[in-house]
């Protein structure tokens, strides 16, 4: 019972990859607690009344727009999301659009919403929207989401044509996407690992409060037959020879 509830509200790994935010923050930012059980003797301790079902859109769950969409009392029609075994479309992948006015055109994936099986393809499947900002009218092209299940197809890098694919293991035990038409491996682009803070892990620029790579990897632990407190007391020259009174744990 609880498992399915968790599945409904779980944020996809690839949706939050680019933002590089800790899970704790995402949970805190999207949480909507209406009531908590008071402390003390209760027949059901730690009961929380909070919003369980969230309506996912192109806005990220920690954004103010998401909170606006899911503000208390706002309900949305039920959304059916097709279950997928393994997510296979990553930022920077070349895909072909199979529906709409940009049918048979190829583009690069730039945004993922895993909760809805959506991706945005750069410059394709756009909608022209008119914004009226104080008398000044602006027209903007906005990419509309495409379903990964049947509205886009991956492009085979060998002949640049759309293809079906399958996840298979290489001899070294690595999982790769293999084109069903040519049998060639479709590599996962390097930009799949890209985040707001760095293009690749090696290219991260250290910030003033960061621990340096060298200090982080330095092994200073030496096992001794002491607890943490005993070792700290020894090093600080704190001597404790008082004998505590006998106590009982129950």
């Amino acid at each position: 019972m609880r498992l399915t509830q968790i599945l409904y509200t779980k944020i996809g790994e690839w949706s939050k990859k680019y933002a590089n935010l800790p899970d704790r923050y995402i949970k805190r930012a999207m949480e909507q607690v209406y009531w908590r059980n008071p402390k003390g003797i209760q027949y059901r301790p730690n009961t929380v009344v909070k919003r369980k079902k969230f309506h996912f859109t192109l806005d990220r769950p920690w954004s103010a727009q998401f909170a606006e969409t899911n503000s208390p009392g706002r309900l949305h029609p039920k959304v059916f999301v097709e279950p997928i075994k393994k997510w296979s479309f990553f930022r920077g992948d070349r895909v072909e659009v199979l529906v709409g006015k940009d049918k048979e055109k190829q583009g690069i994936v730039k945004y993922i919403v895993q909760e809805r099986n959506w991706i945005l393809v750069e410059g394709l499947n756009c909608k022209l929207t008119k914004l009226d900002r104080g008398g000044v009218k602006i027209y903007i092209q906005e990419e509309q989401p495409l379903l990964v299940t049947d509205q886009v197809a991956l492009v085979d890098p060998s002949d640049l044509k759309s293809t079906g694919f399958e996840w298979r293991y290489t001899q070294s035990g690595e999982q790769v996407r293999v084109s069903l038409r040519t049998g060639r491996i479709i590599p996962v682009p390097a930009s799949a690992e890209e985040t707001r803070d760095y293009k690749a892990k090696g290219l991260y620029v250290e910030q003033p409060k960061d621990t340096s790579e060298k200090d982080l990897g330095e092994v200073t632990f030496e096992p001794t037959l002491k607890t943490f407190e005993m070792e700290i007391m020894d090093q600080m020259g704190i001597k404790e020879d008082r004998i505590p009174k006998k106590s009982y744990w129950y």
């Binding site: 803070d197 200073t220 632990f221």
Partner: peptide, 21 residues
């Protein structure tokens, strides 16, 4: 304000008690 990631358990397990303190 840009910052790095948090300390993981694996990072901390190789540090001495004094360092942790």
């Amino acid at each position: 304000v840009k910052t790095g990631r948090s300390w993981t358990k694996d990072d901390l397990r190789i540090k001495s008690n004094t360092d942790l303190h």
